[in-house]
Design a protein around this nucleic acid. Structure first.
Lengths: 147, 147
DNA sequence: ATAAACCTTAGAGTATTGTCTAAGGCAAGT
DNA sequence: ACTTGCCTTAGACAATACTCTAAGGTTTAT
């Protein structure tokens, strides 16, 4: 059983445009064509496409995914390179996670403030300080309070 | 004490170009100007910029950050909107984390395979299956094995 | 046989987020 | 006064990742 580009697009949640774009970018060199020149996706192709989507979903740029696919096309001789590429990516993902979580903590701090019953007072205090600082520096007050 | 655009850029790890770009995008309406028309960042401005960078680092698009800043400029009356915006973003971050972690698991599975002493055999098995499937569908074998 | 619904390619267009250049003003040191 | 090194703006350019249009070929149903 093989699949058309539209069927694959539906299956994996991408558009046919995007799949053709990926092919243009060298991400799908393994996809064959039928007698009319139409792309013919096998189950194995779907498996590889799934890997491509995993890499994409974790933020790997297309150029790096292409490198990985190039390695795959070379067969078992490139296993060590693949391992290194994926491991480097893995480290990048984890580092990114740490960074995001640190930033999320600060956002949560703001959220806590906004959820406080006295939020209005707390915000007004910040605001008063910012305004005072602007005044001390001879700068105009940029906060337009319709309040 | 106030800071020039270059000092701020160094302090927060962005370029002066990027800060001007953010200003153009309406992210820095609170930054004042000195008598020469130069941007004059107060400590309070740095605080707000820090929040902007937190949102940026967690993947919020500039258009949404601008919305948040617009709310901040309106004073305490917009607290509920700010809370909603940040909370929606928080949920998006967490959902993204879950997605990334699920994808990372699959990458880790590949890494485990590539790290296996019998990696070559495992990869060859996959390859043989993919080749057989191509053959069964009358498609050419796209795998160039220099091996 | 003809319409509808696919598929193909090349290439144009879009969105986002910067990054830099050009032309010129301002401030400090020699 | 003049050089150096800031700053300003407008706008050009770039990288990334799509997204779509145009023109045309194929397949299927009626």
């Amino acid at each position: 059983m093989t699949y058309t580009i539209k069927e694959v697009a539906t299956k994996v949640g991408l558009t046919a445009y995007t799949l053709r774009f990926y092919d243009k970018q060298g991400l799908l060199p393994f996809v064959g064509r039928d007698q009319s020149g139409y792309r013919d996706f096998t189950e194995g192709d779907l498996h590889l496409l799934h890997t491509i989507i995993c890499l994409k979903n974790t933020g790997m740029p297309i150029s790096h995914i292409r490198q990985y696919i190039d390695y795959v096309m070379q067969g078992p001789q490139s296993i060590e390179q693949r391992r290194q590429l994926l491991n480097t990516h893995r480290e990048a993902i984890l580092a990114q996670q740490v960074k995001i979580m640190a930033n999320l903590k600060e956002i949560d701090f703001k959220l806590d403030m906004y959820s406080d019953p006295a939020a209005s007072e707390l915000v007004n205090e910040e605001l008063a300080q910012a305004k005072a600082e602007k005044e001390a520096e001879g700068l105009p007050d940029p906060f337009i309070l319709v309040d």
